[in-house]
Design a protein around this nucleic acid. Structure first.
Lengths: 162, 162
DNA sequence: AAAAAATATGCATAATTTTGCAGCGTAAAT
DNA sequence: ATTTACGCTGCAAAATTATGCATATTTTTT
């Protein structure tokens, strides 16, 4: 199961480069050490919400939905980030501590990102439980959280039990 | 020359409906009285910047770039709209009068829409000259301006020489 | 007004993407 | 331990889109 990793790398590549076809993406992935077929890419790209759009130079390129490109990340981040106190890995799950009363909003925000890596969240008053999808490593969830809330890991101290 | 009209109708259709393929768009255009081939649609869609992206329901649909979808229209409209005083058709061109000092901003805003119908604009202090592309009717430019600045034509009185 | 140039379009075909299906591996249930 | 269920993947075919080329249409030049 390397799907989660593949999705993250695909996301990184098409966010940073102009990829004009699934075949060329296939090539780039090979350079990153990921192998799969073009058919799989077709399915993965749909899952990421990525589409093939004009690149403004007469050609085409793959592009992530606005929601994932930072527009999303910059809208509510300012209110969410300060409420997060710390993140603890526990039993393959992650527990996020927030300021009192902020767990709900923060969880909604995380849910809104619709990340593949996260199976679901449960929020109390100041605590959020993040349940990673099977086969997803904690490291991948951390990467994913950093994507949802840029600056998160720089700002807070991560207590790691593992 | 019905390209300008076709582009506008394509834009209207894919903005309002979920169109999943060029063939079905071809069909819808026929219903609107426009005939062309799939090859032409492929080229026109690229010109509009429209791409085929996941629709969130497991399927695909054509989608306009953010800049054209109203996100754009709603961001700066509030500041631009009030500055427009009137619009006059003259010699196949359009002249927009604004409050003193506002022509520049308004023109930049209009240019930013990158509309096919508009070849270019020239702005003074309180006057903007809009030069329609050849083959585009004044009516089409008005439609286009209404798309860029929703509410424009409701708000101001249009003085029409034609 | 005729010729030349530029733009737009259709046709046929190439290129690319999507999908049905079968096989695999993992996890849950019996 | 065997069976059942479920998600992921590759393969090959089907569907869809992009493009080269020739032609038609419009615009500009002469």
């Amino acid at each position: 199961m390397q799907k989660a990793e593949r999705l993250q790398i695909i996301e990184k590549i098409i966010a940073g480069e102009d990829i004009s076809s699934q075949d060329s993406l296939l090539q780039r992935l090979k350079e990153e050490g990921i192998e799969c077929t073009q058919a799989t890419l077709s399915r993965n790209l749909r899952q990421l919400g990525a589409g093939r759009v004009p690149d403004g130079k007469g050609g085409l390129k793959y592009s992530l939905p606005e929601a994932m490109k930072g527009t999303y990340a910059t809208i509510g981040t300012a209110q969410i980030l300060p409420a997060v106190i710390d993140i603890v890995d526990a039993k393959g799950l992650l527990v996020i501590k927030t300021l009192p009363g902020n767990a709900g909003n923060t969880a909604i925000y995380i849910d809104g990102a619709n990340r593949y890596e996260i199976a679901g969240t449960i929020a109390g008053d100041d605590t959020i439980l993040i349940i990673p999808r099977d086969g997803v490593t904690n490291q991948q969830v951390h990467t994913c959280l950093e994507i949802i809330l840029p600056g998160l890991h720089d700002k807070i101290k991560i207590i790691n039990n593992s």
